[in-house]
Every structure is written in C-alpha cells, then in structure tokens.
C-alpha cells in the first residue's frame, strides 16, 4: 500500500515537509474541534454522566443483554454462513455447468437474489413462515433472518466460485481434459480446489457483510445486538451509550475478521496453491459486471494490494 501512496508525490524537501507538518497540525486541530464539539453537545444533553455509562461495568448488562444479543447475532450469522456456502457452491457449480438446463436456472436465481434487497427477502420469509406455520413461532424471526441472509450471500458465493474458477489459467482445465478427465472430474479435482483457495480471502470478507446484515433482524424483531442495545437504552435511559458500545462490539469483531481475511490472502499468495493467485479485490468488486470490467482495467504497475 505504501508504494502506491508515495507514487503521487515526491519525497518532500524542506519546504514541503514544513507545509505537510502545518497541514497535519491543522487537521489535528480541526479533528480536535469536531470531537470537542460532539462531546460538548453530548455533555450538554447529559449523555456523558457516569450514570449513563456505569451500567456497562456491571455484570447484569453483559449477562442479560449484551452477551445474549451477541449470541443471537452470531447464531444467525453462523447458520447463514453454512447454508450460504452450501447454496453458493451448488449455484456456482451450476452456473459453470455445460448443461444449459442447469446453467440457466442457476444464472437466473443468482441474478435475482443479488438484485433483490436482503430486507425484502427477510420480510417475505418471515411473513411466509408465519402465515403458513412453517416454523415454530419462537424461531420465526431467526428463520426469517437466516433465509434472507442465506439467499443473498449464497448468490454472492456463487459469483465468487465462478470468478474463482475463471481466474485460473486456461491451461489447468485444458491439461485436465487432455489427460482424460471428464468435465465433472476436471471441475471437482482440478478447478474447484484451486478456486476455493483463491476465493478464501473473499469469503472471509463476506463474513463481515453477513455479520453486519444480521442487524437487519432488528426490523423483524429478532433478538440480536441492536435490539438489545435499544432495550438497554430503555431500561437504563442511556440509549446513546448503549448504541456506541454495540457499535464498538461490531467494529472490533469485523476488524478482526478483516485482519484474518488479509492474513489468509497473504498466505494464499505466498504458498500459491491456486495457479491464478488469490482473487484481487477488484476482481471481486466487479464480479457483477464480470469479464467486461476486468478487461477494461488492465493491471497497471501500481496494482499491488
């Protein structure tokens, strides 16, 4: 990253160094003023009093609210991950199938689940399960959240599988076919194992999305962290501190996941299990517009990530 940043400017001389130092100082001052303004505003509304923050030091808030909330969030996310990987694997292989009657339905499903907002799918699943008594009523909200997350992220994983396989050099499948493997065997024993390695970092990053989106469960009354934050707020009259604490929990977990994703990516690159290397971030971002965009943006020399 540092190499691509320094590309825009020379090593600063004495005058620039002074200028940069002044600008740095100014930005620190501006930031301090903004923070002071926010704190002052919070203080003015009595949000910084010990009474509002003390509850987070008591065991009760943690055992009764935050930890159950966290468990709710993680349960929904974990179930969705497993189901999404399964669904995504099937749809992804389906999209790569040589049989048109498998390929087309898979394509349509993936495009559909990607285009429809997760919230709509959650609401629909929730109502559907409630209306037709498909799920015990105490599991209704969880089932709704999991369904929405699974369908959307399954489509994303399917897209990742496809870009993973496409990122492999053509020689891989040509060689496999040349030694007499069938299409299915080529996919199973040559392409997929390498594709999985290539897309592993992207899948770990997708966990962040799943974890964040599980907060949508708030809307269908699923008992997760955000809902618990609101309950703490109502109970102790400290809504803003509760939201800040919950946001901090999300940020810490998601940052850890991002760090893991980076580590996995570095490892994949170093060990080179996939002939095409790990998927580059822009290969993933542009998965929706697939080949067109990756052709449009040839890897420049500054293309390190």
């Amino acid at each position: 990253m540092s190499s691509e940043v320094t590309v825009l400017f020379d090593a600063p001389g004495p005058r620039s160094r002074r200028l940069y130092r002044i600008m740095g100082l100014v930005s620190v001052v501006v930031l301090a003023v903004v923070i002071w303004f926010v704190l002052d505003k919070l203080n003015e509304k009595g949000q910084l009093t010990a009474a509002k923050w003390k509850p987070f030091l008591t065991g009760e808030i943690w055992t009764e609210y935050l930890i159950p909330g966290l468990i709710g969030t993680i349960t929904a996310a974990a179930i969705s991950v497993v189901l999404a990987l399964t669904l995504g694997g099937l749809l992804g292989v389906g999209r790569l199938s040589h049989a048109a009657w498998i390929r087309w339905p898979s394509n349509v499903l993936v495009e559909f689940f990607r285009a429809v907002p997760v919230l709509l799918m959650m609401l629909f699943a929730y109502k559907l399960y409630a209306e037709y008594d498909l799920v015990p009523s105490d599991r209704l909200a969880l089932a709704g959240v999991v369904t929405g997350l699974t369908l959307y992220n399954g489509a994303v994983v399917a897209e990742l599988v496809r870009s993973g396989v496409h990122s492999l050099p053509k020689g891989q499948s040509e060689a496999a076919l040349a030694v007499g493997l069938t299409q299915g065997q080529t996919m199973r024993s040559v392409l997929l194992p390498q594709a999985v390695t290539a897309m592993l970092p992207a899948i770990v990053s997708q966990l962040v999305v799943i974890l964040k989106d599980s907060a949508l469960g708030y809307i269908i009354t699923y008992e997760e962290l955000l809902r618990k934050a609101e309950q703490i707020g109502n109970y102790k009259a400290n809504l803003i501190p509760a939201f800040i604490v919950v946001a901090a929990i999300f940020i810490v977990i998601n940052s850890l996941l991002s760090i893991v994703a980076n580590k996995v990516e570095q490892r994949t690159r170093r060990r080179g299990h996939a002939a095409g290397g790990p998927l580059k971030p822009d290969q993933i971002d542009q998965a929706a517009v697939a080949a067109a965009a990756s052709m449009a943006a040839p890897a420049g020399p500054a293309h390190s990530s």
Partner: peptide, 30 residues
C-alpha cells in the same frame, strides 16, 4: 502526503464500513 489526513481517512473507512447500516440509521433517528 499528510500522514495525519491519511490516518483520519483510514479511520473513517474502518469505523463506518464495519458498522451495520441498520445501527447507523436507527441511531440517526433515536
């Protein structure tokens, strides 16, 4: 080229990207 600005920018992206949108919007209201 200013290191402080880079840090502030990176901090913004890290903080906001890792916060659920639902939380942000509910917070905007409540």
């Amino acid at each position: 080229p200013v290191a402080t600005l880079r840090t502030i920018g990176a901090a913004y992206v890290t903080l906001v990207r890792n916060t659920p949108l639902t939380l942000l919007i509910v917070f905007c209201n409540l």
